[in-house]
Amino acid sequence: MDLQSLYHEIIVDHNRRPRNFRRIEDATRMSEGHNPLCGDKLKLYVLLEDGVIKDVSFEGSGCAISMASASLLTERLKGRPEAEAEELFEEMHRLLTSDSEAEADTDKLGKLASLAGVRAYPSRVKCATLSWHTLHAALEGEDLISTE
């Protein structure tokens, strides 16, 4: 496993210039994610209308993997149906965790598949999944989620 597979150019780009890195004033859902192990913290805002994610954004700080993962998430889900978010959450889980039996559908994941390299670094998987767990909590209407 070389470093370029982990720090793929898409990840490096999204870490340096995170997309949708802002607050949504009229968000209908908000959730905070926290990884106490490394101090990663993020707030995820969702504007949900009639089952569609009209807008999604985040704020926070963390490692390149967690920042890029959150950025890619918002880019992918903006304007998409809520149900698709849950499907992709499952797909990301398959991509990142080695205990999953089925192969992840990388066509469906598109750019999100650039996080596949994380799988070889078990201690870093939580960094990549934090934003997805936080989104899941926001959509479920929970208040705070921790990956710990």
């Binding site: 470093l3 720090y7 490692c63 390149a64 870093r124």
Partner: peptide, 13 residues
């Protein structure tokens, strides 16, 4: 601009 956990992984390499 570089998180310690990214450094940890890069240094491990």
């Amino acid at each position: 601009d570089i998180h310690p956990h990214d450094l940890g992984t890069i240094l491990d390499h």
